[in-house]
């Protein structure tokens, strides 16, 4: 596949100058990463403000081994929680977004802001009714309740993303389908869904990341048996002395699955590019 040259002819060699700002930005993004990686390899007594830039005196994997041993028992909890939470809320968001963007019924314009508003609720302030409600529906303590919370509090953001993405799709496309006799569901499955890949990528990235990194809901809604990895990561720190070297190693390990998801999903941006050719 020659995707790279499909849009602009190769003769514009000078456009590679655009790589310079990108490389500069890369440096900005990598500097903190550098510190995390370097600190993750340091011994406890080497972690000091004075020497943050220095390389560790020896490359030891002790911190990673320690963090790995403490985190892995909770890895499955995280995966079992994040995958359904991300998928269900993305699908709900896509359906909602489609209906609210394209199939106006009376009240649709009120419902959207009402759903959206839910995003701004400060979660810290609703922990108590949340826990009480979850207990009352027997969802407290385990992973299903946590999944439910992530799905529901994910609805506003996924709906927003899909709705506004679908709003960029030309009306003519949908009207053409309607003239061909497609009903609502058919229009969704045949016209909009195939065009939604970049949006699904963006939403899945968001939902996966926020559920994976969530600490607050996890710590109040689950029992120790069901703790996801973030609670375990947080528990590696004591209440007084914190070993930052092990914390850095642990959080890099905990970030690996998310990173792999990014790399994997990122390929689908290219699919989105191909899908874009359908329009116009």
């Amino acid at each position: 596949m020659n995707l790279f040259q499909s849009r602009v002819p190769f003769r514009f060699q000078w456009r590679y100058l655009l790589l310079l700002p990108l490389l500069f930005m890369t440096a900005f993004y990598l500097i903190p990463m550098y510190l995390m990686i370097v600190t993750g390899f340091k011994a406890f007594d080497e972690v000091s403000l004075k020497t943050i830039w220095q390389l560790p005196s020896s490359i030891a994997f002790d911190n990673y081994i320690e963090a790995y041993a403490k985190l892995t028992p909770y890895l499955w909890n995280s995966i079992n929680m994040v995958v359904p939470a991300a998928i269900i809320s993305s699908i709900l968001g896509s359906v909602n977004g489609f209906v609210l963007a394209r199939w106006k019924f009376r009240g649709a314009d009120v419902i959207f802001p009402l759903i959206l508003f839910g995003m701004f609720i400060p979660y810290q302030s609703i922990l108590i009714p949340l826990v009480e409600f979850m207990r009352s529906i027997n969802m407290y303590g385990g992973l299903p309740g946590l999944v439910l919370a992530h799905v529901i509090y994910g609805i506003p953001i996924t709906t927003l993303t899909f709705r506004n993405y679908y709003a960029t799709i030309p009306k003519e496309l949908i009207e053409a389908a309607r003239i061909d006799g497609a009903d609502l569901l058919k229009t969704y499955f045949y016209i909009l869904l195939p065009l939604s890949i970049p949006s699904f990528v963006v939403v899945l990235i968001w939902q996966f990341t926020s559920a994976w990194n969530d600490f607050l809901f996890a710590v109040v809604l689950t029992n120790p048996d069901a703790w996801p990895i973030t609670v375990a990561l947080n528990n590696m720190a004591g209440s007084q002395i914190i070993a930052w070297n092990v914390q850095m190693a642990g959080s890099l390990l905990a970030a690996l699955p998310t990173l792999l998801v990014y790399i994997f999903l990122g390929r689908y941006f290219l699919r989105g590019l191909m899908a874009g050719a359908l329009k116009g």
Partner: peptide, 21 residues
């Protein structure tokens, strides 16, 4: 459509994968 697009994209996204703490 510059070379290394996916590399840059992942570098820019990576910070999001790490917990705020």
């Amino acid at each position: 459509n510059l070379p290394g697009e996916s590399f840059f994209r992942n570098i820019f996204l990576f910070p999001m994968a790490i917990s705020f703490i």
